[in-house]
Design a protein around this nucleic acid. Sequence first.
RNA 1: GACUCGCUAGCUCAGUAGGUAGAGCACAUGCCUUUUAAGCAUGGGGUCCUGGGUUCGAAUCCCAGGCGGGUCACCA
Length: 575
Amino acid sequence: MSHQELSEQELIRRQSLRELEELGIDPYPAAEFQVNTNSAEIIENYNAEAKNYQDICLAGRIMSRRIMGKAAFVELQDQQGRIQVYVNRDEICHGEDKTLYNTVFKKLLDIGDIIGVCGDVFITQTGETSVKAKELKLLSKSLRVLPIVKEKDGQIYDAFTDPELRYRRRYVDLIVNSHVRDIFIKRTRLVNTMRDFLSQRGYLEVETPILQPVYGGAAARPFKTHHNTLDQTLYLRIANELYLKRLIVGGYDGVFEFSKDFRNEGMDRFHNPEFTQIELYVAYKDYFWMMNLVEEMVEKIAMNLHGTTQVQVGEHVIDFKRPWKRFTMYEAIEHFTGIDISEMDEAQLRETAKNLGVTPDETMGKGKLVDEIFGETCEHQLIQPTFITDYPIEMSPLTKKHRSKAGLVERFEAICNGKEICNAYSELNDPIDQRARFEEQLELAKRGDEEAMMLDEDFLRAIEYGMPPTAGIGIGIDRLSMIMTNAPSIQEVLFFPQMKPEKTDLADGDEKFSALGIASEWIPIIRRAGIARLEQLKEAKPGKLHNDICGINKKTNAGLSNPTLDDVKSWIEKL
RNA sequence: GACUCGCUAGCUCAGUAGGUAGAGCACAUGCCUUUUAAGCAUGGGGUCCUGGGUUCGAAUCCCAGGCGGGUCACCA
C-alpha cells in the first residue's frame, strides 16, 4: 500500500513506530510477557484492606487515555474486561530520564496499542479500582485507528453499529463491542453443553466427509467442486445424515457430529451458505424418546447460559422449562384455524388452502398443501417451544412411516419463536421402502425439482445389511444460538458471515509508473488525481489529467515544475 | 430475485432552492489536575460510494452501477 493512501492519523502512527525504533524500543517484541492476573479477577477480588494484588502483571489493549501532565489514566482491555491503569511519570521512570513517560507513553503510544503493565492495585479517589503502573511495556503497536465507543451510566455514545463494517472487520467489532464478544462466548458454551450432555450418555462424537460424491440427507441445492487427481465431481455436504446412519449400521449405538453444512441457496438474516448443525442418531430409540432428549438438552442449555429456563428473545420471554407443548400437525392447524383437515382429500385441501391465504400451485400434492397451510397459519404463532409431530409422508423421504396413521411419518420439529429449531424422526430402516422413496425423489428431479434427493446406492446397500430402529435429530446451532443470545440475525452469531467481496481497487506500485518515464515525485500526485492503476491511466484524457495534476501541484504547494501536455501524452501512449 | 432505505473526516452523524464542506469524539500543539463519555485553547484532516447526464457551477437534481441494511419469495 502506498503511503499516499494513508490517513493523517495512520501516517502519524507509522511515524511513531519509527521513533520508537530510534529509541531502541521494539514495537513488536518476541519475548513472552508473563501475566499473572486479569481485569475481571482484580475487580472482583481486590480488597483494599487486605492489600492483595500487589506486584501483579496484566496485558491488554489501550482503549482510552486521559493524560494530565505527569499523571495519566489508561483503560486497558483484556479478554475478561477492562480495568483502569494509573500511570504516573515518576512511578514508571525511576531515574532522571523521563523519556518513557514523556515521549514513549504520552506521544508515541495510542489507543489500540497492546501493552503489558506491572504494578499494584489500589482504589482512586473517585472509587475506581485501578492498577498503579510501575512498569509499562509496549507489546504491539497499532497502526490503525479504532472506532471510539464511549459509555457513561450505561449510555453508549458513538456506538460502532454499521453492519457492513462490523461483519467485514469482525476483529474491530470484537475489540470495541463487548456484547458481541459475549455472544460468541455463549455460542461456544451452548455447543459445549450439548457435547457434554451427549458424551456423558455414552454417544460417540464422530467426523464424516464434507466432500461427498453423492450429496444427500436434505432437500437443498449443493455447492459443486472438483477433485483433480480423481477427476471427479464432489459436492460439499448439505447434511451428514446418510453417513451417520452408516455408522449406526456399523454398530455404534449413538453417534453425533457438529457439522458445517453448505447449501447453495439464498442468503438473508436466517440463512448463510455455510451453517452448523448437530446431528445425532441413537439406535433402538424412536421419535418420542428423542423429544424427551431434546427437551432436556435445550432446557439445560438455557440454564447453563442464563441460569434460568426463561430467555428474553425480542419482545417475548421464552420459557424452555419441560415439558414443552406437543401438537400433531393436524391438531396445530385445527387449533389455530378451527378447521379439521385430517380427513380431507386433495381437492378439499386445495380449497381450504386458498381460503387460508395460501396460493397453491398445480405441482403441490397433498403433503405439500398440508405443509403450506401449517406454515401459513401456525408456524409464526408458535413462540414458546412446541413440538409438532406426524408430518405428511411426501415431505420426508428418509422417515419411517407412522406406526398407526396412514399417509404420515414419525417425524417432529420443535418450533420456537416462530422458527424451526430442530427436525427429528424415527429413521427409515426398511431398505425396500427407502429405495422406493428415493425413486420418488428421482421422479421429482425429472420434473425439475432442484432440491430432490439423489439416490445413494451405497447408503441403500448399508441399510440392506440391516440398521437397527433408530431415532435421529438435527438441530440448527446457528438458529438456536440466535434464540439463546437474542440475536436478530444469523450474521450476529457467525464470526464471519458470508458477504460479497470487498472492493479492493488494488493500486499499481511506483515502479510501474516509473517505467513510463514518470518522475517519482509526480506519482503521488497522479494517484491523488484518482489514477491508482495503469489501466486507469490508459483511459485518462491527457488534457484533463495534465490539468488535474498541475492543479494539485499548485493547490498543495508541492513546488514541482509542471510537465508539459506532451509529457503527459507520452506516458499514456506508452501503454 | 423483487421492493425499499442508506453510503459525507479514523468513528458516530448533521447539512445545503444547486454556489468555498460541518459538529462531537479521535488526532496534533500547548496548559493542567487521582481523572471519569475529563476540561480549556489552538490547529490539521474529506475523489461528500463510483460512472454518466442536466447546469456557468453537482456532495446536493436525474440515470446507471457498486456495497450494505430492511421487507418479501425459496430455504435450516
